[in-house]
Design a protein around this nucleic acid. Structure first.
Lengths: 134, 134
DNA sequence: ACATTTAACTTTTAAAATGCAAGTTAAATT
DNA sequence: AATTTAACTTGCATTTTAAAAGTTAAATGT
């Protein structure tokens, strides 16, 4: 997506304003997925060509990076960059929104409680974890 | 967009996971826009048929509602519902993300500072303002 | 060693969404 | 009465998405 304006919100949407990009980030962020096939097996079942093009775009934009797997040379390992990790607060607020307005979804209630009682601590903790995933 | 899974993040994207919906919410939320023609005149210049279909979708999903303007009977007034207003924290975190990772965008620096120093107060204040817009 | 499976894609083609320009209708203004 | 404004709708070309099948290299099983 090419830059549409100088608005900071529009800018975020230029990176992840589609139906799939944030689901990739979600899987890297919360579900410990790191390979193409793991990413493809989400509940939402994204088509492989879309996954491929989104990974390429997210990498080009600096939200994720990939490396070769040392053990299995067929595999590639996808991880969040710092810019990708910094999407965490946005993701948390989306979960909070759904906890209130779509409670029939699978809300991680402990996480939501902790967002309310110890937001800064939670974000720091999760951010550190994500940085440490080698 | 039809429901793709029971994931709370996927759920939010089913509502606003496209390039335009959150820009409409932004304009209603931060820029005091309330009419079709005002919404059409954003920097991003969305096509009128897209604006029309997004307004319809957002209304059907309960994020906005419309009423007739009392003074000018040609006009319709669009406003955020509570569910729409509750997107505020997501929007703020997007601005915070761009403040860090896309500082060349038009960052509202006072707002960003206040997010860091008095997040709860800021959200409460802005939320009240949005509720009061009659 | 050979056959099968797995991982990460690419290609093809049909369907759907988007973008642009022009047109419509009712109400307000000149 | 004529023009302008607001809120759309329509038609059509272009782009994007989705579904299915195919490709290549590396690993695994026999």
């Amino acid at each position: 997506m090419t830059k549409r304006s100088d608005c900071p919100i529009s800018n975020v949407l230029d990176h992840v304003g589609d139906k799939w990009s944030l689901l990739i980030i979600r899987d890297l962020m919360f579900f410990g997925k790191h390979s193409y096939s793991e990413l493809q097996n989400s509940d939402e079942k994204m088509a492989t060509n879309i996954l491929s093009s989104r990974l390429e775009k997210l990498e080009k934009e600096g939200l994720i990076y990939k490396q070769k797997d040392k053990q299995d040379k067929r595999k590639k390992v996808y991880r969040l960059t710092e810019a990708g990790i910094d999407m965490l607060p946005i993701m948390l607020e989306m979960i909070v929104w759904s906890a209130k307005h779509a409670p029939e979804t699978n809300i991680p209630n402990q996480l939501v409680s902790r967002v309310h009682t110890d937001r800064a601590g939670l974000i720091q903790e999760l951010t550190e974890q994500l940085h440490q995933q080698p």
